[in-house]
């Protein structure tokens, strides 16, 4: 595996500055993280099948919601789950939940797919290498958040006013988020931007309050 390929590889994991010290002692967090650890430690196929049953349809839904055709979305979901199997050792339950980690894998595959598509349209000659090039945003970033902080972020997210939560939700699904969101919701672009700022400020506050 290349140094830049995996979720933790390439990220300044050991001795990373700031972002708070990771929680002492791995805490499994939730049943999906437990299953993922079973895959990592024992190559547990039943655990993998359970993860597949839960996450593959959600990754597929995410891709379709982002505008992908069902067949392509299914392929990406397959790819994502194979990546889960292959990279499971890099998962650290003390730092992120399985849901966050698998989201990061799916997101990166979506970026690769969008780039392959962009290149095909431009008739350029590098097709097929999207998965092979270093990821400019190592998924390791997802791992810098310890499980306790993740709980605080989830609580802050659940407490967001619906108008802000809606914008954050759409930001994850639309390719050109803010212009499209403004048109969809019939609100000015400035309003979209200020709601993003307000929502992110609340998440930031949640991080600061639970060091």
């Amino acid at each position: 595996m290349s140094a830049t390929e995996g979720p933790a590889a390439g990220a300044p994991a050991a001795g990373a500055p700031a972002a708070g010290a990771p929680a002492a002692g791995a805490r499994a967090g939730d049943e999906w993280s437990v299953a993922l650890l079973a895959v990592a430690r024992g190559r547990d196929r039943r655990a993998f099948a359970a993860l597949f049953a839960h996450f593959a349809p959600r990754v597929k839904a995410f891709m379709m919601r982002a505008g992908m055709a069902p067949a392509a979305a299914e392929e990406i979901a397959q790819e994502a789950m194979l990546a889960v199997w292959r990279k499971a050792e890099l998962f650290d339950a003390a730092r992120a939940s399985a849901a966050t980690w698998i989201f990061a894998i799916a997101r990166n595959l979506r970026i690769d797919a969008a780039r392959r598509e962009g290149r095909a349209n431009a008739c350029l000659d590098h097709d097929g290498d999207g998965l092979l090039t270093p990821d400019p945003a190592p998924m390791g970033d997802a791992l810098l958040l310890c499980a306790e902080r993740e709980g605080a972020v989830r609580a802050a997210l659940a407490a967001l006013p619906e108008e802000q939560a809606a914008i954050i939700r759409l930001s994850f699904f639309e390719e050109q988020p803010h212009g499209q969101i403004a048109r969809q919701l019939h609100i000015p672009l400035g309003t979209v931007k200020s709601r993003v700022r307000l929502a992110v400020a609340r998440l930031r506050k949640a991080l600061e309050e639970r060091p």
């Binding site: 990373a16 700031a18 972002a19 708070g20 992120a96 939940s97 849901a99 966050t100 980690w101 698998i102 989201f103 990061a104 997101r107 970033d141 997802a142 791992l143 810098l144 958040l145 902080r149 993740e150 972020v153 989830r154 997210l157 954050i168 994850f172 992110v200 998440l203 930031r204 949640a206 991080l207």
Partner: peptide, 12 residues
Amino acid sequence: RALVAALEVAGG
């Protein structure tokens, strides 16, 4: 980095 990690939680 911490904020992006929080936003990735939101993505999940």
